[in-house]
């Protein structure tokens, strides 16, 4: 559990030395994106308005708490991340195309993303802490540099480009060896759930509500079929 302070653009060596559960603080330019940004860029073929690989190779899955006070003048109060594993459709492509070295998000991504993609591209997954210690992260945002595509995507979903200083703490959830911190912890608590489940009988009926669960069935979808290697 080593603590690192790194400057953006992150270098490949910076990133490859990181290991799960290390703590990271960042300085430089971070940009945000959720599904609408990914679709705008990857499906809509819109070129990002800055050179991501050289200026902002860290993307945060999040929509800040922020407003536009006057045209082009933004005020950001807090920022945290949203559940990242739901972006598995976009992340591999985006990371490869734009030379992204770190994704900041929540909940990690499924292990195959780390093993198959991040190990190759030299990218890590940094999880926000808490997950939502958004006031502390908001403090570290020195300036909103710009908000791209706010007309098309709406203010929260637009790509916010942020100047950050000592932005953190983040915990390395997925490193370039393909290890996943969250997956390790899920594995360790599963036996405790199994113990509790063993004390309880089956439901009388299978399902007439919404909850339908087995331990094998995590919320994240896992590796898509047909992506063989």
């Amino acid at each position: 559990m080593t603590t690192h302070r790194l400057s953006i653009p992150l270098q490949e060596d910076d990133v490859r030395q990181l290991r799960i559960s290390d703590v990271v603080y960042l300085d430089g330019t971070v940009h945000t994106g959720r599904a609408l940004v990914y679709e705008h860029v990857l499906q809509g073929q819109n070129q990002p308005l800055l050179d991501l690989a050289n200026e902002s190779n860290v993307q945060m899955h999040g929509a800040p708490a922020g407003v536009e006070d006057a045209p082009g003048e933004y005020r950001l109060s807090s920022i945290q991340a949203t559940a990242s594993f739901r972006y598995w459709k976009y992340v591999p492509d985006y990371v490869e195309r734009f030379g992204i070295r770190a994704i900041i998000g929540k909940g990690g991504m499924d292990k195959w993303v780390y093993e198959d993609v991040f190990a190759k591209t030299g990218t890590v997954f940094l999880t926000t802490v808490g997950y939502g210690i958004a006031a502390l992260y908001g403090r570290a945002v020195k300036r909103v540099i710009d908000v791209h595509w706010k007309e098309e995507l709406g203010l929260p979903e637009a790509m916010w480009v942020l100047d950050v200083e000592n932005f953190g703490p983040f915990i390395v959830d997925g490193d370039c060896t393909g290890a996943s911190l969250a997956a390790e912890h899920v594995d360790s608590v599963n036996k405790n759930f199994a113990r509790e489940y063993a004390k309880l009988p089956e439901y009388v009926l299978k399902r007439i509500g919404e909850i339908d669960h087995s331990l094998a069935n995590e919320v994240i979808v896992g590796k898509p079929a047909g992506d063989g290697d």
Binding site: A65, A135, R139
Partner: peptide, 18 residues
Amino acid sequence: AIVDNFHAAEDDQRPVCA
């Protein structure tokens, strides 16, 4: 960090979570 964060939110009048 959670404790630091609720202090920061109150001191700076920022949302506890975004």
